[in-house]
Design a protein around this nucleic acid. Structure first.
Lengths: 345, 345
DNA sequence: ATGAAAGCGCTAACAT
DNA sequence: ATGTTAGCGCTTTCAT
């Protein structure tokens, strides 16, 4: 069945060690081998159809060349882009093990334990927010000395490097751009603020409004659970628009925590004959791909998620290779994407 | 650092073997151990914070409890759903290693070799279509005896189990539903037919048209590369509509190979003042999530991709566990989702 | 009911 | 320039 180093060694008339080094090139402990033997070994290995056994190599070498990537969810082309950035950065030296927790504490625990058992060389994770798993993160870091890089949010009590888009500036910029268009009455449609990015969105909104002298116009509508299925979003969207219809003075713009919720709001507007952007401007905050579709054209704020992944991976590799690195915090700039759902007043 | 079986054995005053069995429950070779020792071992292990080392277990046990999942791409909520189905089915016994080839032969080769080196227990793969990798698939199957289940398309010359939605019936049903609405002049907007599903889409269209006595109305517009970025799609969409505008008699309906292309077509129609569905009905074939958005409402054909993943995983597990199973072919039914871009004539 | 011991296939000192 | 050898942390016969 599977060919081993030993078999190659026998066939090539050299020792197993020589084969091991020959096959891996010169990288490790500077052993010098005659090019002629190397060539012979390579040939034999090729003829026999040798495939290295990573499992054995990992056990012996105490390195698995594997990193654990734990994200909150896969849907919605968000962590997909992050994952792509990670893959790009570590390829082909490391391979990522993908895990998803969906904000479920049990899944998160399970996946993290799995990372430990798999002896991954490093972890990139988006913390779920469940405090009961903090000790597990600490164990990974301190007991197992596995480097961790965080995505999007910190873990209270743990000093860990973090990479995320500038959430505060996201809503801050959005409010300012709306202001520049002439809007003064801007309502923020938010989430429960239990996740750090939501809190920052909210703060960015509040700060911008205050700075612009619009403190009295601040108004927030929010719903407890942010990550929901389409049905729940639809219902919430209807509530938002009903509230808007009844309010006076009516806000001229809505700043919406997620593009997918904004799409539903657009739908409700359409049903009720509210013209966007003529009667109402709508703006999302996490530029998802449908926003760019010609029939949607939702104004939103774009973050380079791929770069988030790349940088996280880069930080992780540094830490894996040099066992160094302080808990840096890297906040990436975001960019306005003004499209068709916002207009000058 | 990491606690080992040996350390637990010493602390508990038993042999390493006993610890190994105790920790894994009763499953393997029916060894009987006194509940009292088991309890003590469990307690010690817990106190010491033991985490099993999967790497060592895999090497010794010749099973990695890992399956390789190779898909064509991640974007577009397609393989995402498949992956979800797979995870659901194998959790928590096996963990999937995710690989993506993007129709690139080199990546595919690399990822498959990686699967071998990782000694995965099984493989679920969507073949890229590149013939030069067929031997590698054969090697996995025959030399390494690693079970493989295919997604979406066969591999010429290899008898392997396959799971896919009914691509033929997708376009076949679509044409019939359009016919039922009164449409007779239906154009198919397709791809290069180099992938099996494209060929089947095309055949379903041709067959349905022929059966309905619409042989003379058959018309196909296609473009070589199907999986492109938005810019290319936009351009192709413009060409499609230009062709439509100039044709006479004008088709009343467009059957579009992918929903994302259809969205762009909708955009072009909007720009040129063509009313959908009043002037033209548009229908997609791979129901993606934006189709359901209220402001899009693209009619399409839905396939239960999650179930594709589930079934593929189920077939794979059977083969891993019993080393049995013929090359079954499972074709899942698809369902029409008539929304707002199609209308009765 | 429990242990001892032989690997699994490789890496990395430590020779020569 | 190449070989010998001792593990890595487990699973699994084979004993007792």
């Amino acid at each position: 069945m599977a060919v081993t180093l030993k078999q190659i060694a026998e066939k090539a008339g050299v020792s197993l060690t020589t084969v091991s080094f020959a096959l891996r090139g010169k990288q490790p402990g500077k052993r010098r081998l005659s090019p002629i033997t190397v060539e012979r070994i390579l040939k034999v290995a090729d003829e026999m159809g040798y495939r290295p056994n990573h499992v054995a190599a990992s056990l012996a070498g105490k390195k698995t060349y594997t990193i654990g990537v734990l994200v909150t969810a896969l849907r919605g082309d968000f962590y997909e882009r992050v994952l792509f950035g990670i893959k790009k950065e570590v390829y082909p030296k490391f391979s990522p093990v993908l895990a998803v927790h969906n904000y479920n504490s049990g899944y998160e625990k399970n996946e993290l334990e799995n990372f430990i058992s798999k002896r991954v060389d490093g972890v990139i994770a988006a913390f779920s927010g469940h405090a009961e798993n903090i000790e597990l993160y600490r164990e990974i870091k301190e007991k197992y000395n596995i480097p961790i890089v965080l995505l999007d949010r910190r873990i209270p009590g743990l000093e860990l490097p973090l990479v995320r888009p500038d959430h505060f500036d996201t809503s801050y910029q959005a409010v300012n751009s709306l202001f520049a268009l002439g809007h003064r009455n801007i309502t923020y449609i938010g989430g429960a603020d239990n996740l750090e990015y939501m809190k920052l969105f909210n703060q960015g909104y509040q700060t911008a409004m205050t700075e612009l002298g619009l403190k009295d116009n601040i108004s927030v509508i929010s719903q407890s659970h942010a990550h929901q299925n389409q049905k729940v979003l639809k219902k919430f969207a209807a509530q938002v628009i009903s509230a808007w219809e009844q309010s006076s003075p009516q806000p001229t713009a809505l700043l919406v925590i997620s593009d997918w919720l904004a799409y539903e709001i657009l739908g409700v507007c359409q049903d009720r004959g509210i013209k966007v952007p003529d009667d109402l401007s709508v703006m999302g905050l996490d530029d998802c791909s449908p926003s760019e579709l010609p029939t949607i054209g939702l104004s939103s704020v774009w973050a380079d998620q791929e770069k988030v992944g790349e940088i996280a991976a880069k930080l992780l590799l540094e830490r894996i290779e040099n066992n160094t690195g302080e808990p840096t915090r890297i906040i990436l700039p975001v960019h306005l994407r003004m499209r068709k759902t916002t207009r000058p007043l």
